[in-house]
Design a binder for these strands. Structure first.
Lengths: 102, 102
DNA sequence: TTGTTATTTGGCAACATAACCAAGCATAAT
DNA sequence: ATTATGCTTGGTTATGTTGCCAAATAACAA
């Protein structure tokens, strides 16, 4: 594999993770997970979304490796697996603060 | 505006920036921009994409406030406006390294 | 002026995403 | 055993994204 091909492969893997972060609902849930594990049901009402929709959003983040799930009784609890994703928000804020000159 | 509404508004703004990052082609271009400004034409051949496609990708990042453009002569040069976006890649790598347990 | 080069814009087709609802599957309660 | 709860999966629809092509624009060259 050439160096360029390698970079493309890596870019794809990174894009998958970023895509999993790039949704307001998922970002909001991640922020909630900063305070510790939450079960699916705890997101449903505050978000005003269908149970299935919330479940699917969590599945996207799980698939990307950002969160972990654990079934206990009837409930499934999700945890932040790689907390550093939240640190990045400072940089994102800098982008927003800088504004767009379009 | 309630605290929760505020958080949703902020999550939307952040999601927009993350969405602009969440594409392999755009990530690859950002990495190239780490070495300094590049004109649109410099991306076209290495990526093997249409000129218009490359231009649109750059427009997405400009709109999000990640890059800036400057026209000089016939060419348009793009620069990284908020270089910290590249630092985040370390965390993304951590997510990838951790893998998914699905 | 006419042509050429660098880039953007508009249009369209293919594909992906996000929402809902309904149905399925465990686990716990009666 | 039956019912209820918590969650996931499949189906559908609406919407968004990405790619190409063709046409428009802008700057420079002949």
């Amino acid at each position: 594999m050439t160096k360029k091909e390698q970079m493309v492969v890596e870019a794809k893997a990174r894009a998958k993770v970023l895509k999993a972060l790039a949704h307001p609902t998922r970002l909001w849930m991640l922020e909630q997970l900063e305070g510790g594990e939450k079960c699916v049901c705890e997101f449903v009402e505050p978000l005003g979304l269908d149970f299935s929709t919330v479940s699917k959003h969590l599945a996207v983040m799980k698939q990307a490796g950002i969160v972990e799930d654990e079934k206990r009784g009837k409930q499934v609890f999700y945890t932040l697996k790689v907390p550093c994703v939240l640190n990045f928000m400072h940089c994102i804020e800098a982008v927003i603060a800088a504004g767009n000159n379009s």
